[in-house]
Design a protein around this nucleic acid. Structure first.
Lengths: 210, 210
DNA sequence: ACCTAAACTGAACGTTGTTCAGTAACCGGA
DNA sequence: TCCGGTTACTGAACAACGTTCAGTTTAGGT
């Protein structure tokens, strides 16, 4: 009786078409600028059909975000093998910034969006470093902490992880927002800023003579 | 002939009523959630009247932002007198974070808003530290740089200033976005994060043994 | 052959930003 | 004093938005 499976497969194919259409438009123009009607037209459905597969625009957006979070976590797997904890942290920062600057609209939806992540019941496994990027960072920090890499008065790995995250997030989010038409400030390249930021924070947090 | 002055005064009073109404609503609910009709009703005008005084919703928003930028620059005046350049930088960071966390919706409009700052022809004086908060920060960085506070390989005050700005922006913007319903991560208080961030970056950038 | 449920459509509702023709009030010149 | 024109404003409308709902088609189980 493979007919239930076929129905389920067709259902997911339809959802996939909608998600693909939505992704292209969101990434190109951002959340607010894309309408459900545009998504529907590109996916070759009527606007109302989207509401059969997704509760509303926010839910559709949230489904895309989950894919993105998974992609980021997967990106981190590339640096999981680095033995030296501090060097691994530096590479995590670089990978994160690279992801953010390569997909600025994704990033905006993931970490700079005002609301629509609200009431999220994600099906990502939390605390699993393979799927949860924050858990991956936290583990690297804990490794470094256990190895005595940090200054002795720093005894809260969670705070350290959040600070490191915030440092790179600050660089990339500022660049994403201000990148367009802001001759007000003579911006340095994000790559330079990321390098200086990781060097500064890690040196500032690390124990020992420089 | 004081009649032209009176007309001008009435014009500004009307604009002030609109700006006040818009400010309250924007600060309470954010840019997207507030409609021109709501602003008009609170200001006791017809919706169309707003378009006589402001070109569109973005322009109205921009006018508010300019007030906010001025307020931030004024806030910085409170720490202008600190002699030690590094300590002054630390206090600038604290003042900035305090401003951001006290007025999160203002901050969102100023530094996390997707677009509507576009094509801005602000009438703020650039490069004047009394009105331009970035110029104020940059001057403090240059003071510290001239005094030889930074590591010898750091020879770009602009890059240093942008990095310091990004570090605090990262902490506060992440907290503003994630503050609401995100039990996913066990967030530390923003005050703790700001303290650790300023300590880490300044120590990481500063010359000399710790 | 009938019935139920799934997948989808067309048309509508209320709200959004914005425009436009029209109007009332005021002031300077005749 | 009346006239003409600018200034400030309104009411109604437009297109587009997210969303809903009453139907219609299609397919499978009985």
């Amino acid at each position: 009786m493979g007919i239930a499976e076929r129905r389920e497969r067709e259902r997911q194919e339809a959802q996939g078409r909608i998600l693909d259409a939505a992704r292209e438009l969101f990434v190109a123009h951002g959340y607010e600028a894309v309408s459900m009607r545009q998504i529907a037209e590109r996916a070759e459905y009527s606007p109302a059909a989207l509401y059969f597969h997704f509760e509303d625009k926010k839910a559709l957006f949230r489904a895309l975000c989950e894919q993105d979070f998974r992609a980021l976590a997967q990106r981190f797997q590339g640096v999981a093998g680095i033995a030296d904890p501090l060097q691994r942290l530096a590479e995590i920062g670089r990978a994160y910034a690279d992801f953010a600057l390569r997909h600025p609209n994704h990033y905006r939806l993931m970490f700079m969006a005002p609301k629509p992540m609200g009431a999220s019941e994600s099906l990502l496994e939390r605390n699993n470093p393979d799927e949860d990027a924050y858990a991956f960072l936290l583990r690297a920090v804990k490794d470094a902490w256990s190895a005595g890499c940090f200054r002795p008065e720093l005894n809260d790995p969670e705070l350290i992880a959040q600070t490191l995250w915030a440092s790179i997030h600050g660089v990339v989010s500022l660049h994403i927002v201000k990148r367009e038409e802001d001759e007000w400030i003579d911006w340095r390249s994000p790559a330079e800023a990321v390098e200086l930021m990781t060097a500064a924070t890690l040196r500032g947090l690390a124990r020992g003579r420089r």
